[in-house]
Design a protein around this nucleic acid. Structure first.
Length: 492
RNA sequence: GCCCCGUUGGUCUAGCGGCCUAGGACGCCACCCUUUCAAGGUGGAGAUCACGGGUUCGAAUCCCGUACGGGGCACCA
């Protein structure tokens, strides 16, 4: 049975978007093979541990619908799924390796390691490697005794000399490394915690992971893992290294240059399904060239061998386009629910359901992200405090608009009627006024007077929704002293 | 520096020896629609397929170099 896994470290604020990408591929691959997707928390670095990160990572994963079959909070037959709770397992395995002669104790201080590294660099020995001082100095027995007496020690992997280590990457083919270039990797740290390398191999084996699907940055350390598998006498899993998502400058996607936390995209008003869809397009393409497809379809059609090996640039603009596609195609009821939920969850706003419902047809073609909703619609919920245009030259005009609107009886207050009346008003204006105020300018004045904004949903429909009394009152209460508000008048 | 992985328009990509005078999408520009902004429609600019050698009747596609980009070289993952 296929078993894949995501192994995040709780060392950031939240799930990294690159991890979300890896999670997606792992999830989809497991699903399409009727396998299991497992989450394992790699919290072996106590120094970088961030409070609450694990919870946030798991929560985000769920928000994206990437449910896992086994994990720290849901359990499973191969737990615990938190590495900090598996310390004895790693120790036992590390000791086993020492016993078999594949690893050895090292008692060197960090200072000494630092020193020899510097010396080697000076001599041009690159990359620097541990000099095996402790391996030469202590016999296996002596070392073990020292260790058992409680002396601070690490266990290092003894990399075989002058040999080649190769493995097959399912999308790149065979990759070979020379063993002489690899340092005697620390497997067990002096604090009793394993390093990543020991922990992944032991856990992937014990948890019966069949396909190790992870980011490309792990290629260089895979030979160490291969060595471990063979030292233990374990069968290798399949390795698949995914391309790394990049910043626009092509460097590895980083928080300095891009928003990287998956939850940030949610807060921005992107839909989980759109984000996942976009991510699927990174390094992979639909055989028919489709750009928009559901995750169910992805599961059906995904082919891991079609993944490219070049690191794609994460383009937020294209994500916005895709997100807009999802928003436009959503059923009104659904769109409304999403908007309501979004503003409640991320802005602690309880928008009136009925009003939101009425505005949906006006904004569905306009919003790219859920957060665009209020950009267009805030005037529905509150009277304009600022006006994006100096209305003082149009005092008389606004007065005329108001009286024209007042002539519309309540029961005829419909978008069509409003439009008709306003067009008539414009037509009836004296020529010299019309020469100064174009028809579109005329409506812009009305627009800003009613909404305060220059960019709005269709005006007549908006006015219909606002209601007769409200519109008339707004025209009455227009504030004309806006010219000094540079930030508003300069907008555009 | 060393090792590994890559290299098709600004970006995501199709392409797996002849269908390519390189196709699609995002973005950009123009026009149409239009009461703002979008959406939609039409059209357009933009790639000597990184470069140089081979192999072949024929190469974006295969091979070798070079350049460039990325990743890795921790008691971090």
């Amino acid at each position: 049975m296929v078993r894949t896994r995501l192994a995040p470290s709780p060392t950031g604020e939240d799930l990294h978007i690159g991890n979300l990408y890896t999670a997606l591929i792992n999830w989809v691959f497991a699903k399409q093979n009727n396998g299991k997707f497992i989450v394992r928390i790699e919290d072996t670095d106590r120094k970088r541990l961030i409070e609450g990160a694990e919870e946030r990572i798991l929560k985000t994963l769920k928000e994206f619908g990437l449910e896992y079959d086994e994990g720290p909070d849901v359990g499973g037959p191969y737990g615990p799924y938190r590495q900090s709770e598996r310390l004895e397992i790693y120790k036992k395995h590390a000791l086993e390796l020492v016993e078999k002669g594949y690893a050895y104790f090292c008692f060197c201080s960090p200072e000494r390691l630092q020193k020899i590294r510097k010396e080697q660099q000076k001599k041009g020995i690159i990359p620097p490697k541990y000099d095996r001082y402790c391996l030469k100095r202590y016999s296996k027995q002596e070392a073990l005794e020292k260790f058992e007496k409680g002396e601070k020690a690490v266990i290092r992997l003894k990399i075989p000399e002058k040999s080649e280590i190769s493995f097959v990457d399912e999308i790149r083919g065979k990759i070979t490394f020379k063993s002489d270039l690899i340092d005697d990797q620390v497997l067990l740290k002096s604090d009793g915690f394993p390093t990543y390398h020991l922990a992944v191999v032991v856990d992937d084996y014990l948890m019966k992971i069949t396909h190790v699907i992870r980011a490309e940055e792990w290629i260089s350390s895979t030979p160490k893992h291969v060595l471990l598998y063979t030292a233990f006498g374990w069968e290798l899993p399949k390795f698949i290294h995914l391309p790394i998502l990049r910043n626009p400058d092509k460097s590895k996607l980083s928080k300095r240059k891009n928003p990287v936390w998956a939850s940030w995209y949610l807060k921005e008003g992107f839909l989980p399904e759109a984000i996942l869809n976009y991510l699927a397009l990174m390094g992979w393409s639909h055989p028919e060239g489709k750009e928009k497809f559901s995750i169910e379809e992805l599961v059906k059609i995904f082919d891991i061998k079609r993944i490219k090996t070049v690191g794609p640039v994460f383009d937020v603009q294209k994500l916005e386009w895709l997100n807009g596609e999802y928003l436009r195609e959503a059923k009104s009821e659904k769109l409304k629910a999403k908007i309501l939920e979004y503003y409640k969850k991320y802005h602690d706003l309880d928008l009136p359901e009925e009003l939101v419902e009425k505005t949906i047809p006006l904004i569905r073609e306009r919003v790219k992200k859920l957060s665009d909703y209020m950009f267009y619609c805030k005037f529905f919920f509150e009277r304009p405090k600022k006006y994006q245009m100096d209305l003082s030259p149009f005092k008389d005009l606004i007065e005329k608009m108001k009286s024209a609107l007042e002539k519309i009886p309540e029961h005829e207050w419909k978008a069509e009627k409003i439009g008709e009346v306003m067009v008539k008003l414009y037509e009836s204006l004296p020529e010299e006024v019309k020469n100064n105020v174009s028809r579109s300018k005329f409506f812009m004045v009305l627009r800003v007077a009613i909404t305060g904004q220059k960019i709005t949903p269709p005006l007549n429909e908006s006015m219909e929704i606002l209601g007769r009394e409200e519109c008339i009152e707004r025209l009455e209460n227009v504030k004309f002293q806006m010219t000094n508000d540079k930030s508003m008048t300069k907008s555009k």
